[in-house]
Amino acid sequence: MGGTALSGALWLGLLWAGSGAGGSCQGKCCQGRDAACVGEGWREGGGYGTCYCDEGCRRAGDCCHDHGQACPAVPCVVGEWSHWSGCAEQCHPGLRVRRRYVQQEPKNGGEPCPALEEKAGCLEYLTYQGQDCGHEHVPAFITTSEYAKERKRRAASSLWPSDKEAPGYCVEFRTEWLSQRCALERRPYARWMQYLRQGHTVCVACQPPAMSAATRRCSGDGHNARGDKILHWEAIGNSQCQGTWKKIRQLEHCSCPLVHSFIFT
């Protein structure tokens, strides 16, 4: 008799929980970890007792049985990246920025928001008054080839009305040495530096506006340098990522993999 009564009580308890009563989260979904957002009933993972309907209950493992249905997780939603800004300072190596904004905040333990800002190295060769500058930079300054797309989008300076007039060229180098700071770089805008490796062949494109209007060359491209001459370079965005290379050849177009393709800046 005692066993039958206990089984009946358990069955009634399950029926009570299944009916949505006793610790239900219907109409009660709280943000963060809220001790007041509490009920008494069956928990989501089993067990009867105190349960919660706040966002922290999943981490704590004490959600009420209907939390998943009554308070579905809503992930963060962000918009598209803005266009890249110009360089922070003209004629000197610096940083550019792009941003995106939250369109929907996460709810009920949903996926958190990703980074909302990215930075990348850049170097502009025009003053705000439109004067050419910066081509005396030594050593060569380089950045990821992805920056070339942004330059085309923003349109070259008045010195270069169209890409057809100055298509540019590419130089192949063999890296001789590079600092350890390149491989240790973890910042999102500078991860491309991790692909620089000693002994590897890299392709570096010379395009407007890094190309001098007078010489039609990029500073540090090794023009007229013999193959055994050691040339120096530095990565835009991290002055501690630098090294040396030797020029292999100049081509109209290079065919290095994307991760080993860079541009003079």
Rank of each mutant, 00 (worst) to 15 (best):
Q129F: 05
Q129R: 03
G130I: 06
G130Q: 03
Q131F: 07
Q131D: 11
Q131R: 09
D132E: 14
D132Y: 01
D132T: 10
D132N: 07
C133L: 06
C133V: 07
C133N: 01
C133H: 00
G134N: 02
G134P: 04
E136N: 10
E136R: 06
E136K: 07
H137I: 11
V138R: 15
V138K: 13
V138M: 10
V138H: 12
V138E: 13
P139W: 10
A140Q: 08
A140G: 13
F141Q: 15
F141M: 12
F141T: 09
F141D: 04
I142C: 03
T143A: 12
T144C: 06
T144Q: 11
S145I: 13
S145G: 04
S145F: 04
S145C: 06
S145L: 06
E146N: 14
Y147N: 13
Y147A: 15
Y147L: 15
A148N: 12
A148M: 14
A148E: 15
E150N: 13
E150G: 06
E150W: 08
R151H: 08
R151L: 15
R151G: 15
K152F: 06
K152Y: 01
R153A: 07
R153T: 11
R153K: 14
R153V: 09
R153W: 02
R153Y: 05
R154C: 05
R154Y: 05
R154T: 14
R154D: 12
A155F: 13
A155W: 09
A156T: 07
A156Y: 15
A156C: 14
A156W: 13
A156P: 03
S157I: 03
S158Q: 09
S158D: 12
S158W: 02
L159K: 11
L159V: 10
L159C: 11
W160E: 07
P161E: 04
P161F: 00
P161V: 01
D163G: 05
K164T: 05
K164Y: 06
K164Q: 11
E165M: 07
E165G: 08
A166P: 00
A166C: 07
P167C: 01
P167N: 00
G168F: 08
G168H: 00
G168T: 09
G168E: 01
G168Q: 01
G168P: 03
Y169A: 08
Y169F: 15
C170K: 02
C170A: 10
C170R: 02
V171L: 03
V171R: 00
E172L: 07
F173I: 02
F173V: 07
F173G: 08
F173C: 07
F173L: 14
R174D: 04
R174Q: 13
R174K: 07
R174Y: 05
E176D: 10
E176L: 14
E176K: 08
W177F: 14
W177N: 11
W177L: 13
L178K: 12
L178G: 01
L178E: 06
S179T: 15
S179A: 03
Q180A: 05
Q180D: 14
Q180M: 04
Q180E: 14
R181D: 14
R181G: 03
C182R: 01
C182E: 03
A183Y: 00
A183K: 02
A183E: 08
